[in-house]
């Protein structure tokens, strides 16, 4: 059964159509990768799913319910969490505080929230930095904190927007491990990523979009050979003749 389904989503900003009749679905337990050139509309698609924008047309279904136009905080409580491409830590607060804000989505008690947060931090190997001010973290740790906060809300589906951008190769490897940890804990993952090595290794399925339109989908190996995809990334002249 699919956990998330986009049915013919379109999103207009004034005259600009950022998403054009996009349809896709994610099965429970899967990792679905979303790729495409810069400005293709990937983050916009996430923002529609997460309730930041209401799509101009089309429907979004999550966990058997129509969630088109639902508010971000209600979606979070329904089990849909996300990270931001440009990280948004509560910079004046500690790492633990940041994660506890997420944990409060599942409990009203402060000590329970703290316990949940510490658990998550431990599983993501961030617990030794729990008392650091989040504004003082390295970029890799900030990205990790984004994931930890989202995980603290106990999601069924996690939307990850370029959490590997700006990381060094060793940090990318660590992040791949983080993804696996998250997936093994039973969370379905919808991920945007530019780093091909990572997305190829991780995804069960890939969707490629360009100018807001889907140009290819399928298993990573098949997508990598798709002419449309090669054209979109490298230009017409690179297509093998």
């Amino acid at each position: 059964m699919s956990l998330l389904e986009l049915r013919n989503i379109s999103m207009d900003f004034g005259g600009l159509r950022a998403i054009d009749s996009l349809s896709l679905s994610i099965d429970e337990g899967q990792i679905l990768g979303l790729i495409g050139p810069n400005g293709a509309g990937k983050s916009t698609a996430f923002n529609c799913v997460a309730g930041v924008y209401r799509p101009t047309s089309g429907e979004i279904w999550f966990d058997g319910a129509n969630i088109t136009g639902a508010k971000p905080w209600d979606l979070c409580r329904a089990g849909l969490a996300r990270t931001f491409q440009i990280v948004k830590p509560f910079a004046s607060k500690t790492v633990l505080y940041n994660v506890m804000v997420g944990a409060f989505a599942r409990t009203d008690k402060t000590d329970e929230a703290e316990a949940i947060a510490l658990d998550i931090l431990k599983s993501l190997h961030l617990d030794h930095k729990k008392d650091f001010k989040s504004g003082a973290l390295t970029i890799a740790d900030r990205k990790r904190l984004e994931i930890a906060r989202a995980m603290a809300t106990k999601p069924k589906l996690l939307l990850l927007d370029e959490v590997m951008a700006g990381l060094r190769p060793t940090e990318v490897d660590e992040m791949i491990d983080v993804f696996r940890t998250v997936r093994d804990s039973g969370v379905t993952i919808f991920v945007i990523e530019h780093i091909m090595r990572a997305i190829m290794a991780l995804s069960d399925e890939l969707v490629v979009i360009q100018f807001g339109r889907k140009i290819s989908e399928g298993k990573p190996e098949a997508v990598a050979k798709d002419e449309n995809v090669i054209k979109a990334y490298l230009g017409d002249e690179y297509v093998a003749s």
Binding site: P72, W73, A81, K88, A91, K93, G102, A105, A150
Partner: peptide, 14 residues
Amino acid sequence: AGGEEPEAAEALGV
């Protein structure tokens, strides 16, 4: 959280 980063807070269920 909402005072500091409203969008992030909303995404975390606030």
